[in-house]
Design a binder for these strands. Structure first.
Lengths: 213, 213
DNA sequence: GGATGTGAAGTCGTTCACAGCT
DNA sequence: AGCTGTGAACGACTTCACATCC
């Protein structure tokens, strides 16, 4: 297979296949065809095969894919077979929600520290619910703690006005991945990655569809 | 201008233009060119013009766009000039976070009710922070309350196993828009709209980019 | 002169259709 | 016989380039 640039959408679908395969594995299914996986994930069967073809040959012609193997391969491709260490910057409503959002913990994404500028919040710990609480540090200790705790992904949940300067701190600390919840565009150097999660953009999208159908 | 199907990406960018124009309006800028708006939003200038062209002619040749007018037009197009009434279904970690997530309130998206099946949660109210608290009802009152409070968008924050049945309830109650946070695919009839917000998909995406760069 | 609006070109992603294996 | 893997066709979105208008 010749090398090609891999579409962003392919990566998102791999994540979806991964979820479906996990369910299939749990229910004891051993082999799956591209058609079965496709209908489960609501995509085209050729799309499934094409997506996988970017990364190699995983199936057996005439048979299908071995569920367990395919799941492992996809996780390896995505990099979701390792544990990722994350920090939350900005312990407001959304930030503290993420800290106690256990669904991350079930996965391979762990929040191992959090930061804020507001002293009242900085003294304590949060995440009352089960599991060990996540410490809150003053943001001026970000670089130090990020190195110490090997943080690889930063979740920016500050007000938009602070987002870029927090991003700069993360870059300086060598945190290469950023998940940006602050509705403002962030710029980072080559080699760093930002993904945005803007609730209002998604809601605007819904509003548009509801207004025009 | 002939009618064309409007790309999803165009709608997302309109939301972004909207945010930038709001900032410009606040800082007193009156006129903006497609090139200026484009660089602010980190897109191509032709893209800005093309996006707007789907909906009409909003600019003045040789001059640019009137900030205030363009902002109004975009909001009208998106349907974000009206107030949208929403409900949260599933008052767990994420659900209660959204209830107290004030950033929605600044916007035109209001959470006016919430629902759960777990009695302990159902008795009370949440959202301690400023603003009036949002009532929590038992999910079996969803249809009744949805009509009464004219709910138009439902945010599903239940475990994945419950997501489809909650969606069915929303459909039955005539709630046409769904924002689905439960990482599972949901099916709704024609005329209803679902947008997914899957944190693990986004994190998988980040993980992939970090692993392969 | 200068910026918009838009057909045409270019790029990217999806679907088809079938050759190639098992 | 059946399902994968993939070149080719198709369709969708983006960018270019320029005619159009203020």
């Amino acid at each position: 297979m010749k090398y090609q640039k891999i579409p962003e959408a392919t990566i998102r679908r791999l994540s979806r296949y991964s979820r479906c395969l996990e369910e299939m594995e749990e229910s004891g299914e051993e082999v799956v065809s591209s058609a079965q996986l496709a209908s489960r994930c609501m995509v085209n069967a050729a799309q499934v095969r094409k997506d996988l073809a970017y990364f190699g040959e995983f199936g057996i012609r005439g048979v299908g894919y071995h569920v367990k193997n395919l799941l492992n391969d996809i996780k390896r491709i995505l990099g979701s077979n390792k544990e990722w260490r994350m920090a939350v910057i900005g312990v407001g409503n959304l930030g503290s929600a993420l800290l106690s959002y256990k669904d991350f913990l079930k996965q391979n994404y762990k929040i191992v520290a959090s930061f804020d500028i507001d002293p009242p919040k900085v003294i304590g710990r949060v995440s009352e619910k089960l599991g060990k609480p996540v410490e809150i540090f003053h943001v001026n200790r970000l670089k130090e703690i990020a190195k110490e705790r090997k943080i690889e992904i930063g979740l920016i949940t500050t007000p938009p006005s602070e987002a870029q300067s927090v991003a700069d701190l993360l870059v300086e600390a060598g945190v290469r991945g950023i998940l940006n919840f602050a509705p403002t565009q962030i710029v980072v150097p080559e080699g760093f990655v930002v993904k945005d999660v803007f609730f209002t953009t998604i809601l605007d999208n819904l509003a548009y569809l509801l207004s025009n159908n």
